[in-house]
């Protein structure tokens, strides 16, 4: 049986762990709030941009000479998967879920005979996928959103993707990230980035155009040429924000669990400790009493 000192030490170490996890939980909660606000603040821009793209894209898509960012390269042989994960662990199944989705997609694409390339945003995703698919990793971006995600960072990643696309290194680009739903739930998304998927222009857009068509200034093509690269940046920015919020949410839930588990563990250990102590006292008493009786 463990000695009293051993038990005391173990209780002490579990208590120390509990303090750390509960502190991490509170930090995650504070960061979550900020990340969530930021993610929500960024939604209007992305929505407006989508609306513009929808009204532009549907009319230009079919025409010859449409920009490749919209119409594609005419092939879907080479795929680029952008896997956005966190830089740090201890956030439950967050990174694992994202990596699992990426792995699934890689297997699926390869089964269809496609070539796959990876761009990892976030250290954890790269670490997890390196062993199996290390040769596919074309690059890694780290340290995103150490404080808060800024647009320039997303733009930098987008720039890299656009350069690769312009150099003809891939045909289709898919972005994997976790969409934030609530503090305890997120949803892994695989979103096609290039060629830009054009949602059907909906009729219930709220504004009545009265069947009128947009005028374009300078021209449809010129706006699209500006809008499409911009859209890549915006979509990545949005994904990074959603990811950050999801990460903090997942970490908060995981740390909450860990704190609770530590509490239960302490309770159990304390019980054993008290029992052991009592048993020893009883033992000593028996010894004294039987000693006295023997006289």
């Amino acid at each position: 049986m463990a000695s009293l000192k051993d038990l005391r030490d173990r209780i002490g170490s579990v208590k120390a762990t509990q303090k750390i996890t509960s502190a991490m939980k509170m930090v995650a909660a504070a960061k979550l709030r900020r990340a969530q606000e930021q993610a929500e603040a960024a939604r209007p821009y992305a929505e407006r941009m989508e609306r513009m793209l929808a009204s532009l894209g549907s009319s230009v898509r079919g025409t010859p000479g449409a920009p490749p960012l919209l119409a594609g390269t005419g092939s879907d042989q080479r795929h680029l998967i952008v896997l956005a994960t966190a830089d740090r662990g201890l956030c439950g199944g967050f990174n694992t879920n994202l990596v699992r989705r990426a792995r699934q997609l890689i297997i699926e694409l390869r089964a269809n005979g496609k070539d796959v390339q990876l761009l990892c945003v976030g250290r954890k995703g790269r670490d997890a996928i390196r062993r199996e698919y290390g040769s596919l990793i074309g690059g890694t971006v780290e340290g995103i959103g150490r404080k808060a995600v800024v647009f320039e960072e997303a733009d930098g990643i987008a720039d890299r993707i656009r350069t690769m696309f312009a150099a003809g290194e891939f045909d289709v680009c898919t972005l994997i990230y976790a969409k934030f739903k609530s503090a305890i739930a997120n949803e892994v998304q695989a979103q096609q980035l290039i060629p830009a998927p054009v949602p059907e222009a909906s009729d219930d857009a709220g504004d009545d155009l009265g069947g009128a068509v947009y005028e374009y200034e300078p021209s449809e093509e010129a706006i699209l040429a500006d809008l499409l690269p911009r859209n890549v940046s915006v979509q990545i920015y949005r994904a990074l924000l959603e990811n950050a919020a999801s990460e903090h949410g997942a970490r908060m839930a995981a740390m909450d669990n860990a704190t609770r588990n530590a509490g239960e563990r302490i309770k159990g250990l304390t019980l054993t400790y008290n029992r052991t102590r009592q048993a020893m006292i009883t033992n000593e008493l028996i010894e004294i009493i039987s000693g006295a009786e023997a006289l």
């Binding site: 009204s55 155009l209 068509v213 947009y214 005028e215 374009y216 200034e217 300078p218 706006i223 500006d226």
Partner: peptide
């Protein structure tokens, strides 16, 4: 400040997309 010059928007403006 549009890409092709400034434009003013009043209610009832024709639908327009501009840089």
């Amino acid at each position: 400040p549009g890409g092709d010059g400034d434009f003013g928007v009043l209610p009832g403006h024709a639908p327009l997309l501009s840089t």
